[in-house]
Design a protein around this nucleic acid. Structure first.
Length: 109
DNA sequence: ATTCTGACGTGGG
DNA sequence: CCCCACGCCAGAA
């Protein structure tokens, strides 16, 4: 088996590298991987990340900073609680200061 | 095998 | 400024 980094694995790698108290968007990751149009696959990959605990998927939101995937955290405000626990202000399922907290892998990496 | 949906994003009207 | 439609790829019915 080749240790070839697949799209999904790449997503995990990037998400795991997201610094504390920082957030990023699906499109940013997809773009970093070279598949700017496949932003959906990023979400799909995060969905698979449910098996992994090293994937801070709560730091990954859509381009609007909205916690679109909070329903997948198995709870209601679980995702928001996690983000707020890191110092990320969340209001109405939306990340406040998203622009400042935004961590672009293509730019930071 | 076909069809639809899904943690998105961008563009056009 | 708001709403609609399309594109992406993969998995499930």
């Amino acid at each position: 088996m080749k240790a070839e980094p697949n799209f999904f694995d790449k997503v995990y790698g990037v998400v795991k590298q997201i610094p504390y108290g920082r957030v990023t968007s699906y499109g940013a990751i997809a773009r970093y991987l070279g598949s700017s149009g496949s932003s959906r696959m990023v979400g799909w990959a995060l969905n698979n990340s449910h098996n992994l605990e090293d994937i801070p998927a709560q730091r990954v939101v859509n381009r609007l900073g909205m916690l679109t995937g909070k329903h997948h955290f198995g709870g209601t405000t679980a995702m928001q609680q996690l983000l707020e626990s890191e110092g990320v202000e969340v209001k109405e399922n939306q990340v406040q200061n998203f622009k400042e907290l935004f961590w672009d892998p293509a730019k930071e990496l």
